[in-house]
C-alpha cells in the first residue's frame, strides 16, 4: 500500500512539474522595457525611411550606428525556419572537397561517403541535394586518385 501511495504521489508531483497554470498573466510582458530595447533601432529606421535614396554605405556616413547592425538573413516577417545545407556550402562542393582530399591521402577515402551522409541527414533526406553530393563525391574521388597516381608515377 505504501509503495502504491508513493507511486501515485510521484506521478502527481511529475504531472505538476510539467504543467503550467493557464491564465491571462502568461500573455503579458513589460512593454516599457520592450520599447526601450528598440530605441536605437527605431531611430535608425526613421533615418532609412526619411532617406530612401541613400545606400547603406551612405547611411553609415550619416550615422555610424548602422555599422553595428547584423546582416543575419534568416529573420523575415513570416517567421520561417531553415534546414540549411551543411555550412551553407553547396552539397556538390562539400562532398567534392572531402572526397578529393580523402582519396588523395588514401587513408581518408571514407571522407567522401561520410560527407554524402552528412548532406543526406542535414537536408532532411532531400534527394536532389543528396544526388548533388554523390556527384561531388564521385568527381572528387576520381580526381583525388588521379592526382595521387600522377604524383606516384611521374614524380
Amino acid at each position: 500500500m505504501k509503495k502504491l501511495l508513493l507511486i501515485v504521489f510521484t506521478f502527481f508531483i511529475v504531472q505538476n512539474i510539467f504543467s503550467i497554470e493557464i491564465n491571462a498573466d502568461l500573455f503579458s510582458f513589460d512593454e516599457e522595457k520592450f520599447e526601450k530595447e528598440f530605441e536605437n533601432l527605431n531611430k535608425l529606421e526613421q533615418i532609412v525611411i526619411l532617406n530612401p535614396e541613400f545606400s547603406f554605405n551612405e547611411l553609415v556616413d550619416i550615422n555610424p550606428d548602422f555599422l553595428n547592425l547584423s546582416f543575419e538573413k534568416k529573420y523575415f516577417p513570416q517567421e520561417i525556419n531553415y534546414t540549411a545545407e551543411p555550412g551553407n556550402i553547396s552539397s556538390f562542393w562539400w562532398s567534392f572537397s572531402f572526397s578529393l582530399v580523402g582519396s588523395y591521402t588514401l587513408y581518408g577515402a571514407v571522407a567522401g561517403p561520410i560527407s554524402v551522409g552528412v548532406v543526406y541527414l542535414s537536408s532532411k533526406k532531400d534527394r536532389i541535394e543528396t544526388k548533388k553530393a554523390v556527384w561531388g563525391c564521385l568527381t572528387g574521388t576520381i580526381l583525388g586518385f588521379g592526382l595521387k597516381y600522377a604524383v606516384l608515377t611521374f614524380m
Binding site: F38, V48, L69, F71, E72, Y75
Partner: peptide, 17 residues
C-alpha cells in the same frame, strides 16, 4: 510594407525594411 527589428540580449541588432 514591412519593418523587422530584432535584438538579442547580448546587444546584436538587426533592421530590415
Amino acid at each position: 510594407e514591412y519593418s523587422v527589428k530584432y535584438k538579442e540580449k547580448n546587444g546584436t541588432e538587426m533592421l530590415k525594411l
